[in-house]
Amino acid sequence: MTSAVRFKNVCRHFGAIRAVDGLNLEIAPGEFFALLGPSGSGKTTSLRLIAGFERPTAGHIEIFGERADAIPPYRRNVNTVFQDYALFPHLSVLENVAYGLKMKGVAKKQRLARAEELLELVQLPGYGDRSPAKLSGGQRQRVALARALVNEPKVLLLDEPLGALDLKLREQMQEELKSLQKRLAITFVFVTHDQGEALSMADRIAVFNEGKIMQVGTPEEIYRAPRSRFVADFVGSSNVLPPDLVERLTGTRAWASLRPEAVRLVSRGGHSATLVSSSFLGAQRRAVFDFDGFQITALLAADAKLPEPGKTARLAWGESDLHLMEDEPVDGPEGAA
């Protein structure tokens, strides 16, 4: 099967800055795909390369099997929901949504009717006559979505689509976007720096750092089995254990990650550690222990019986919870220590 989007050794350099550096990636049709990474990691540039706003300095991009790197944006059947929505201020909501059809030369009556349908799809029926300036952030978001969907794109690109919304609206929109994607069966590629968002929404995730992809996988894979310290750190705040410690614990010399929620408090057995601090998070309690000179964070039940800070407790975890990171070189700067 052809990929919906395929990057082949794609580079996008701005002078000395390597925004995207040797990218290889395949996104399957119908996938809800997340590009996750800190700011400046190259995820937005990758999205812009798909949209056609940037051209690769090397390598090439295929969209549904066709070479696209020399095709201008207006000839790609790919649409974008912009981070700040980029609604046309001089057009009404309905005209904004109908814009893509107008450019295609669809007659006014049809395109306005179709735009109205799209507004219903994003749950804004009857908002057509308003000016975008008069809408709330969430409403604008939906208009931007409707506008991008009106041309029935093969791939929908979303650039930090929920970044400007408050928490509650964000959770609601996450659900909506997901169900919309299932219904329309369009390939969604979305950029985010919020690992929670990526984990909860995406079918697969590519984690970016410094213009390169660190790991591609399902949310579970990424979360449970980070292949590098960067991914472990960035996705889910894992405990990262250095090779010396891991060697003592398992006999294998490698970096390993240990998710905080995998750490249990036991009365006997396990490993002895000193409680440094603890904080109450509502449903859970987070405790930081000193373990052989390393800090280990544990996410415990809210009513867990913790000793006084400075006193010893016993910690345990499942053998499989200690995940060895195969991509992380053992002799890294801290590994030798």
Partner: peptide, 18 residues
């Protein structure tokens, strides 16, 4: 005039003249 309006326009299928 924000640049992303021009990108949005091109993205929605508008040739430069449009």
């Amino acid at each position: 005039l924000p640049n992303n309006l021009l990108e949005a326009s091109a993205d929605l299928g508008a040739a430069p003249r449009q």
